[in-house]
């Protein structure tokens, strides 16, 4: 494969061998190397230090660094499994792997549950869902009266909270999303199937023999 040595790729904080990352995820070695090109691009948008900070992550999502967004922040925090406040390359690949079209459905269900369990109690509570609805309204042109929001919450919890204890546990969430599969649409990124096409320059920086890939 590629034979142009990359400059200091191994000097990136948290850089991990593509072969090692490919073995842990759905990605091939070539796909991991292509993701490194994406990682570098996002991670150098504000401060070029070889990691992705929250500002850079939000900028990549919104193309506007001033935007604060509850959901983008929540996804960043879930990607940041080591709670360092920044994403290194390994964090980035292992988190994106869950969004691969071929990743296990169960992983997608668990990740989406954590996404909505804002305070990490192991339950999605009504107040959390209301907060997220209000955040959504804040970022869109949509306006809803409080009584309409409450009616939406009533309907949602009637359907999802099957034991009617006022909160949704993982088992209830599992059943709910299987009945409402569109809720998992955000958990799959078709782009990840074509990542090597999207970032073909990875070939020029590859450090891995074609045979290993």
């Amino acid at each position: 494969m590629g034979c142009v040595p990359s400059k200091g790729r191994r000097q990136f904080p948290g850089y991990e061998d593509p072969v090692f990352l490919a073995a842990q995820t759905t990605f091939s070695v070539s796909e991991v190397e292509a993701l490194f090109e994406l990682f570098k691009s996002i991670g150098s948008s504000v401060i070029d230090e070889g990691i992705i900070n929250k500002e850079e992550f939000v900028l990549a999502l919104f193309k506007n660094r001033k935007k604060e967004n509850l959901f983008a922040s929540r996804i960043f925090d879930l990607f940041d499994v080591k709670h360092k406040g920044v994403l290194d390359f390994g964090d980035f690949v292992r988190a994106l792997h869950i969004f691969h079209p071929s990743a296990p459905l169960e992983d997608k269900i668990v990740f989406s549950f954590k996404l909505y369990d804002l305070d990490n109690t192991g339950f999605i509570e009504r107040q959390e869902v209301k907060l997220m609805l209000l955040a959504l309204l804040g970022e869109s042109e949509m306006k809803l009266a409080d009584e309409t929001i409450e009616a939406i919450l009533d309907k949602t919890f009637l359907e999802a909270d099957t034991n009617q204890d006022g909160k949704i546990d993982l088992s209830e969430w599992h059943s709910f999303v299987l009945k409402n599969p569109s809720l998992l649409r955000i958990m799959t990124l078709p782009y990840l199937r074509d990542i090597t096409t999207a970032f073909p320059s990875f070939v020029f920086y590859s450090e891995v023999d074609e045979a290993a890939a």
């Binding site: 959901f71 609805l133 959504l136 949509m142 309907k155 949602t156």
Partner: peptide
């Protein structure tokens, strides 16, 4: 669809902040 016909999570999932495909747009 009118919001009342959707559940809360269907609405929330429309947030741009949950749309990671934007990461791949150059």
């Amino acid at each position: 669809a009118a919001p009342l016909t959707m559940n809360a999570f269907e609405l929330i999932s429309k947030s741009q902040g949950l749309n990671l495909s934007s990461l791949f747009e150059k």
